[in-house]
């Protein structure tokens, strides 16, 4: 007698289970999430990073910012001056912009004239200030992670950063893991 291989319910169930697992894995790899490595400490570039982050957060996209190297200056709180720094760290502290209001432009900086003009124009045209953008970002749940390694390099201390909700400190692997599951990754 001929035996035909009719697919049984169990076989189909098994196939569905396998597919569900695959889809779950794929979905996890392409989360509705934006990861940005913010490396530049220029006013214009930090602005760009924040505007994109806010737009994404408003569109219900999870946003994870990884601040590294020069961008750390933007996160410094000018009112905080931590104790116990060595000579080189102190020098770096003096030479680098103390906070987001002191950032230079990547172009047309003109010894600080450029940023002054840009800020004036921003105000005139109702563009949010960088300070306001950070505040909104915090409210919208934009996550900020500070790169521990660059923090150490520049001699910054955790105590000198702005008060931002759930400011995290981590290494490159955190960015790689976050970026790996994000559907959008940017480097600014």
């Amino acid at each position: 007698m001929e035996t035909t291989k009719e697919p049984t319910i169990e076989m189909l169930q098994k196939q569905v289970d396998t597919l569900t697992k695959k889809v779950e894995k794929l979905e996890k790899n392409r989360k509705d999430q934006l990861s940005i490595a913010v490396v530049s400490g220029d006013l214009d570039k930090v602005l760009a990073a924040m505007v994109i982050s806010l737009a994404a957060a408003a569109m219900d996209t999870q946003v994870k910012l990884f601040f590294s190297f020069w961008s750390l200056s933007a996160l410094r709180d000018p009112k905080k001056s931590p104790k116990g720094k060595d000579f080189i760290s102190k020098m770096f502290g003096i030479m680098l912009p103390k906070g987001k209001d002191k950032l230079a432009l990547s172009n047309m900086n003109m010894v600080g004239m450029g940023p002054m003009m840009i800020k004036m124009l921003m105000k005139k045209q109702n563009v949010m200030s960088l300070g306001e953008m950070f505040k909104q970002a915090g409210e919208l749940g934009v996550e900020i992670t500070v790169c521990e390694m660059s923090m150490g390099l520049m001699g910054f201390k955790k105590e000198e950063f702005i008060d931002y909700p759930n400011l995290r400190f981590a290494g490159a692997a955190t960015f790689v893991a976050d970026a790996g599951e994000s559907s959008m990754q940017l480097f600014i």
């Binding site: 806010l54 737009a55 408003a58 569109m59 109702n126 949010m128």
Partner: peptide
């Protein structure tokens, strides 16, 4: 009306 991009989107959200 008193805010530029991305202000209106944030206000709407």
């Amino acid at each position: 009306r008193g805010t530029a991009c991305p202000g209106p989107l944030l206000a709407a959200k």
